[in-house]
Design a binder for these strands. Structure first.
Length: 893
RNA sequence: GGACGCUUAGCUCAACGGUAGAGCAUCUGCUUUACACGCAGAGGGUUCAAGGUUCGAAUCCUUGAGCGUCCACCA
């Protein structure tokens, strides 16, 4: 890395791949990612973000890259603003996802199942796999430039987190918030495990609706085989057809090889009288809705499908068949008996496991549940109420706000949470059973059964593990040391921002609020910032099967991390899906290069490379303008960032850096530096603006800014990383407003108008022409800036007058009440020029007319704010003046 | 069935009640010693539709259309 010689020889194009890794290594070595190691870090106000732990299943995708870019942006911004910024990394063991993945690998490579390997060996393999992917994930996080505190890295399945999970479950048990019960759960036959309600996905499918002769009735069903487990038939109580039947029972016989069923007729408002025959066969063991009806009506429950997805003893002759086999066989038998009245086609939703897409089988099972409605002893509120309060009372603010409604709706309708999973990989449930089926929940392995008077020492631990979200729901506080009362916990919790994708609002965000309000009596975070999904150029979700997945590690070498980060942050809004594609990233790569070249110009043109931190005294209009713009942009960008408006802030900075600084001020600086009287002050302005621009950009593009900083401040005494420099001083809006001036804009417009005329008349770019500016009251201003106008508009002799007439054979243009005339002798075609002026005249006339109409309207002058009306009046005066000049110009053409 | 979001230049997005903007793409010129990953200039929009509120609507209200997402779920 170049260390800022006095006149640095810098590469023409910025090559990110040459500098990024080196800079990251130096940052990491410095220790400043750890807020305690920042200068004065212990005394600074904390700002905390915990990294949503990526699943330990493999590689990070571009969605993760977005998350890293946004969080690093916030962390770097806050660090520069004087906070002890803590960004805490980790990984999630993601029990089902990881186990599924490893099972698949082993199946493919060794043709073995996890049962072939046994629990111990299988878990060893999973750990091995996790270790490997964790390394890859860590590398990717580094590649993105994340200023994350590796010394505090955590894992949802490591010892401290295990201890915490056991402690929480015990407390919940003591508070009566967890119970073990036989209830209908979502069962994945492939995973042989339960799933939470929100882990079930729905896919539309075409299905057959069978109308069965059902005792005295007709009942429609898409799942005939479950009818072997019916214990009731339900009708809407207001349905006249069936009213008289409610409360009565009848025998139902499905034929040889099945057990006859006793069916009670019940009334339930959930039944839609207009669907099918208006009757529902109630199968309590295999439908959550039916189970609720069974509870209300005290029906018996007959389970006919087992955990392996095969029919049970209760299904009689169909025992041992898979669900689909049983369906076919049963339908065939029913047909033979003439029990099928008709079959209709219909589209319905098939529920499937969100991890392996296997069809979900609802069935009753003995599981652990968290009761979300029970009042917590001593708190007077349920988990659900606490979670709702956290957002309702403003403790947690969700961005964008509309997701608060989504959150309420979900939380209000939350049912008891099934937390036990028949998965090997995860936190083992700390519950033990004796042969008499007494339950003992404990913090450490118990020696005797906890049930009164039992005394059994033959205890076996529950073989199940916890839902992965049960442990990741504790992420904000367990990563900071809970249940120990650590200084970190005291200092950094609640955390400040949780930044994540809206797709895990329920899975994770809601669960964190639930777990944290219960355990900590605190919110987990004050603000939730939700980013959208990243889609491809055509707006499609990225997926492996479509082959449109953008791997950050593929594009970083090509365009550099800074460009990738910009492309993920700019042009996006919270909660809205964003598109990324190659050309977009390339565009930001170009900007990275632009910033590099702006710096290269400044660093190689000044007499001495140095920091110029104090605001220099401006000597020219351009100086005043660029310094005022810098202050305004600093204020506006900071305000946007404070409001989590990262894209508008970035757009503002981009426009300032490229258009205002590079295209205008740098060009003028070249002119000013020719003038010995202005050279020193111009250098100061250049260095000052550069220093601040680097700071402003640093949270967005840390690498290129740090690389340039190295060149700028490399020789300075006590040189620090840009990363820990302080943010530019933010002036108040009033201060910034006071410095606003339209004068420079006018100069720009005049130059633009002349360039336009030149281009229209195809004047060779290098050729210098003469020009006359008829400037009225602005003559003095233009004269003061005649050097700038002459050079940038390529004028040979520039004449500026207050009053005058357009020379003959000249082309002219109007701008801000000024007439710019270019006597292009021999080049101006009078007819063409006349046509051009006529067109401009017509335009102006139309505009003047509309302004006159506006001002002639009392409704407008009376009701519109005075400032607006005054502006219109001024505009009218200016346009009338221009119109007069056009008319005069036409006269001489 | 319920809720939400989007619809503005060819594409990606800004403008949040006062003459519609930017980047990319397109076209025309430029080896102007920071940058061709560049510079200068240009063209391109009944702001999805129809009503309404207002002196004034891309912006607020109503209705509708198209696209998308989430939740619930039908037996």
């Amino acid at each position: 890395m170049l260390r800022g010689p006095k006149k640095p020889e810098l590469a023409k194009a910025y090559d990110a791949s040459q500098v990024e890794d080196g800079i990251y290594a130096r940052w990491e070595k410095s220790g400043y990612f750890d807020p305690d190691k920042l200068p004065g870090g212990k005394k600074k106000k904390p700002f905390t973000i915990v990294l949503p732990p990526p699943n330990a299943t493999g590689a990070l995708h571009v969605g993760h890259a977005t998350m890293l870019a946004l969080q690093d942006l916030m962390i770097r911004y806050k660090r520069m603003r004087g906070f002890a910024a803590l960004w805490l990394p980790g990984t999630d063991h993601a029990s089902i996802a990881t186990q599924t993945r490893v099972e698949k690998n082993i199946q493919e490579q060794e043709k073995k199942s996890r049962h072939d390997l046994g629990r111990t060996e299988f878990l060893r393999r999973v750990d091995e796999f996790v270790e490997k992917s964790r390394d890859r994930i860590r590398n990717q996080i580094r590649k993105m430039g994340s200023s994350i505190d590796w010394s505090r890295e955590a894992y949802t399945l490591d010892a401290p987190r295990s201890e915490a999970v056991i402690e929480i479950f015990n407390r919940m048990y003591e508070d009566g918030l967890v119970y073990r019960g036989e209830r209908v759960v979502n069962w994945c036959v492939r995973c042989t495990s339960t799933l939470a309600d929100d882990e079930v996905e729905y896919k539309e499918q075409k299905a057959k609706l069978y109308f069965l002769k059902y005792g005295p009735f007709s009942v429609a069903t898409t799942r005939p085989e479950t009818k072997l487990g019916d214990t009731a038939v339900a009708a809407n109580p207001s349905d006249e057809r069936y009213k008289k039947w409610i409360g009565k029972s009848f025998e139902l016989d499905w034929g040889k090889g099945t057990k006859p069923l006793t069916i009670r007729v019940i009334g339930d408002h959930e039944v839609d009288a207009n669907f099918g025959s208006g009757l529902v066969g109630v199968t309590p063991a295999h439908s959550a809705v039916d189970f609720r009806m069974a509870e209300k009506n005290k029906l018996s429950v007959i389970k006919v499908i087992g955990e392996d997805g095969r029919m049970l003893e209760t299904a009689g002759k169909y025992k041992g068949m898979t669900v689909l086999e049983a369906r076919h066989a049963f339908v065939k038998d029913l047909e033979a008996q003439g029990l099928i009245e008709k079959v209709e086609e219909l589209t319905n939703n098939l529920s499937a496991c969100y991890r392996c897409a296997t069809a979900i089988e609802p069935l009753t099972s003995l599981q652990w549940f968290v009761d979300v409605n029970k009042k917590i002893p001593g708190r007077g509120k349920s988990l659900k109420e606490l979670s709702l309060d956290a957002v309702r009372k403003g403790g947690v603010k969700i961005i964008p706000e509309r997701f608060e409604k989504v959150y309420y709706h979900w939380m209000e309708n939350l049912r008891d949470w099934c937390v036990s999973r028949q998965i090997w990989f995860g936190h083992r449930i700390p519950a033990w059973y004796c042969p008499d089926r007494h339950v003992t929940v404990a913090r450490t392995v118990p020696k005797v059964c906890g049930a009164k008077g039992c005394g059994s020492k033959r205890l076996t631990q529950d073989s199940d593990t916890f839902d992965t979200w049960f442990s990741s729901g504790t992420w904000t506080f367990t990563t900071l040391g809970w249940p120990k009362k650590t200084p970190d916990l005291k200092r950094f919790h609640p955390t400040d921002v949780l930044e994540t994708g809206y797709d895990i609002l329920f899975f994770w965000v809601a669960r964190m609020i639930l777990m944290t309000t219960y355990v900590m009596k605190q919110v987990p975070f004050k603000t939730v910032y939700l980013h959208g999904l990243v889609r491809d150029e055509q707006g499609r979700k990225m997926s492996k099967s479509l082959g449109n997945v953008l791997d950050p590690l593929d594009v970083i070498p090509k365009y550099g991390t800074d460009a990738v980060r910009l492309s993920l942050v700019l042009g996006t809004a919270p909660g809205a899906d964003a598109k990324v594609w190659d050309e977009k990233i390339a565009g930001y790569r170009n900007f990275t290069n632009k910033l590099w070249n702006v710096s290269r110009f400044i660093l190689t043109s000044v007499s001495k490379v140095r920091r110029e931190s104090k605001k220099p005294t401006p000597k020219t209009l351009a100086d005043r303008w660029i310094l005022a713009r810098l202050e305004a942009v600093t204020a506006q960008a900071s305000a946007h960032i404070e409001k989590y408006e990262f894209s508008p802030a970035g757009e503002l900075l981009r426009d300032f850096s490229w258009t205002e600084l590079a295209d205008w001020y740098l060009e003028i600086a070249k002119i000013q530096m020719q003038d010995t009287k202005l050279k020193a002050s111009t250098e100061k302005v250049l260095l000052h603006v550069l220093e601040n621009v680097l700071k402003l950009w640093h949270p967005y593009m840390p690498f290129v800014t740090e690389a340039i900083w190295d060149l700028l401040a490399g020789n300075a005494k006590g040189k620090k990383f840009l990363m820990i420099e302080s943010w530019p001083r933010v002036v108040t809006p009033a201060e910034a407003g006071a410095q606003r001036s339209r004068d420079f804009d006018l100069i720009r417009e005049v130059i633009g108008a002349i360039r336009n005329v030149r281009s229209e008349y195809k004047v060779e770019p290098a050729k210098r022409v003469d020009a006359t500016l008829i400037a009225g009251t602005k003559a003095k201003l233009l004269k003061e800036n005649s050097d700038v106008i002459r050079t940038l508009a390529r004028i040979e002799t520039l004449t500026i007058v207050a009053k005058g007439e357009k020379p003959k054979d000249a082309a002219s243009a109007m701008v801000g009440g000024i007439e710019a005339c270019l006597p292009l002798a021999g080049m101006v075609d009078p007819a063409k020029e006349k046509a051009r002026l006529e067109k401009e005249k017509a335009n102006l006339e139309g505009f003047v007319k509309s302004l006159e109409a506006k001002l002639g309207n009392r409704g407008y002058t009376d009701n519109a704010p005075k400032g607006i009306v005054d502006k219109t009046r001024a505009m009218l005066a200016e346009k009338r003046e221009e119109l007069k000049k056009i008319v005069a110009a036409l006269a001489v053409t």
